[in-house]
Design a protein around this nucleic acid. Structure first.
Lengths: 340, 340
DNA sequence: CGGTCCTCCCGAAACGTTTCGGAAAACATA
DNA sequence: TATGTTTTCCGAAACGTTTCGGGAGGACCG
């Protein structure tokens, strides 16, 4: 509740000088600066965020806007995102605002309103679509934001992403190099941008390695155990030529694939080889699979720090070059692939 | 980006009158009011939250401060809380700020700082301890808050809670009425306020129903499957007199208890009767237990609306009487209890 | 000694809103 | 005609901060 005026009165200084002292401006005597800072601490002073925002344009608050959906409470990835980002921003002295929309509420008006009231300095965008309207909207509005992933043709905004094209290439090439020609790819939902990019890597690896690019072997859908299971059953049920190997978009899919193959009486890697990308989601360890799973590994939890970093940088007006980051991944060979 | 000044200029009115028109004050001509509101909408006006806060003291933002801990991403209850509260406040046109502390960071300084910067109108407190210092702190600071549960002697603050004493009484009495005398209670962590209250209900029911209040039958701990399992094994391992029935603080504990009893070769309800309180956590249905579980049911997800309601009411200065709410629960008898 | 350059400070304006205290005009009342 | 009352409006102050423009005093230089 203490204000600059209180401190100024206590020290017989002007408000101006107190403000300058606290903000480490140049033209204030060192002794004065120390006196001011000491009394500020003593009086338990915290600058009023609204007043500061009003004149300086910064509030130190960033937002995440997400749609609510049934069972969001069970979505571990969402939980990771929220906990990770919140922790990161709290640690930077910033505040994290979580805005949860009604299930089918359109997003743009929500951003519009949040921007209008001017209480947020920027946004984190997750789950970008292939041509994501939010990006255009925020770009036009001139608001800072950072994208988890990339989307669209002109990537002129801050982002953190992993090399999804290369990762899908590596996984697929690992299989072609071991003689596999018919390789299935259980990919994510078709409207997500990283899904398209991964598909390109998969196709490129097939082409380079002499694999067959059969449309029925590339499947899109939610990346959970249920889809891994059902897709696997379908792959080995019809008349169409069957794969000898399966690339999974994440480890949850792979778990479903293992269950499906077991149900079909097929062994890993004897009958079918399996590889996956591993986000290191909690309580799902690829090394604990039997047989242990060959993966490209890139923990999702390594995303939050660079994302917060980039958004904070964007708000401070740092040059774009420093705000576009690519995460690394490791290729970990285990026991789920056979040489044909 | 449009301001009151812009609207005033466009309509050749004073800023004062525009503000009063938009806020539905009395002394503004009906025709003027409509004109103002129309142009405000046309110019896509949203009041600047910081400016408003500065003069009116309200920002429309509320906060939740929680400690981060390992594997918080796997904690479904936390997820429910965040998603539920965020949705509720978003729906009320308020913003929900999630502040995640470092793992062992003391909480009070964080509240202190958040209060100091004056950007929040109030707080939601979850997981109250038996004598929770946060309550005293916020009460002294004169900040609005609402507690999920109750704590301390003087309950002079807004809260939403369920009748934990009565609920534990009902579960225990259900067993004594069927002839059980040695009844174990797997309760929550001893420092939580609702745990103490439930213990009182358990004791009262034992006394009323002629049960034996044996200290070794009342166990405290995290309410998860692992503890349900280990506590059960221990209850039936030592020299001490063994229970004929077990009351579980939640359904996760009960699941562990079922597993433990199965491992010990004991049947439900033939050898041991089991009852529990059911928060209706996702993916854990008491009716799907075998044998199906007798419970007191009170869905956790019914908490968020009254909590948001009470906090919003407290901020608006409504009388305390309307801000203290008790949730109801149902007693659902199924097949996990035998008559002795 | 006059001029220039630091060092340290301050008043005042600005950000966008709400609200207090009038005040002009129109109209009714005595 | 004088006196209230109602309706509709406005200027100005206030919230707490940052920042612009300037200014007093001293040191330094030629």
């Amino acid at each position: 509740m203490a204000t600059l005026k209180d401190i100024a009165r206590a020290l017989d200084l002007s408000i101006t000088q107190v403000s300058r002292a606290l903000n480490d401006h140049s033209d204030v005597n060192e002794a004065t600066r120390l006196r001011v800072k000491a009394t500020a601490r003593a009086m338990n002073y915290h600058p009023n965020a609204s007043a500061r925002k009003l004149v300086s344009g910064r509030s130190g608050m960033v937002g995440l806007v997400v749609p609510n959906y049934r069972n969001i409470g069970q979505d571990r990835i969402f939980m990771e995102v929220v906990a990770g980002l919140s922790t990161q921003f709290s640690g930077r002295g910033m505040q994290f605002v979580l805005h949860m929309m009604a299930e089918h509420e359109p997003a743009l008006p929500v951003y519009q309103k949040l921007i209008g009231t001017a209480m947020l300095d920027g946004f984190v965008l997750i789950d970008p679509m292939e041509h994501d309207p939010r990006i255009d909207f925020l770009r036009k509005a001139g608001v800072s934001f950072v994208v988890h992933g990339r989307s669209g043709k002109t990537i002129d905004y801050p982002y953190f992403d992993i090399a999804n094209e290369q990762l899908a290439y590596d996984l697929t090439a690992h299989l072609t190099q071991r003689g596999h020609r018919r390789i299935a790819f259980l990919n994510g939902r078709a409207d997500r941008s990283y899904v398209t990019v991964r598909e390109q890597g998969y196709i490129r690896a097939l082409r380079d390695g002499g694999g067959e690019a059969l449309p029925h072997l590339h499947l899109n859908g939610e990346m959970d155990e249920a889809h891994g299971l059902t897709d696997t059953i379908r792959l080995f049920s019809g008349e169409a030529p069957r794969p000898t190997a399966i690339v999974c978009g994440n480890v949850r899919l792979a778990r479903g694939v293992y269950q499906g193959l077991e149900a079909l009486g097929l062994s890993v890697p004897g009958d079918v080889s399996v590889v996956a990308h591993d986000d290191e989601l909690p309580a799902l360890r690829a090394s604990a699979f039997f047989p242990s799973l060959t993966v490209t590994k890139s923990p999702l939890r390594d995303s939050w720090e660079p994302l917060a970093d980039c958004l904070a940088g964007a708000i401070e007006g740092k040059p774009l070059g420093t705000l576009q980051r690519l995460g690394s991944y490791n290729f970990i060979e285990r026991n789920s692939v056979a040489r044909l």
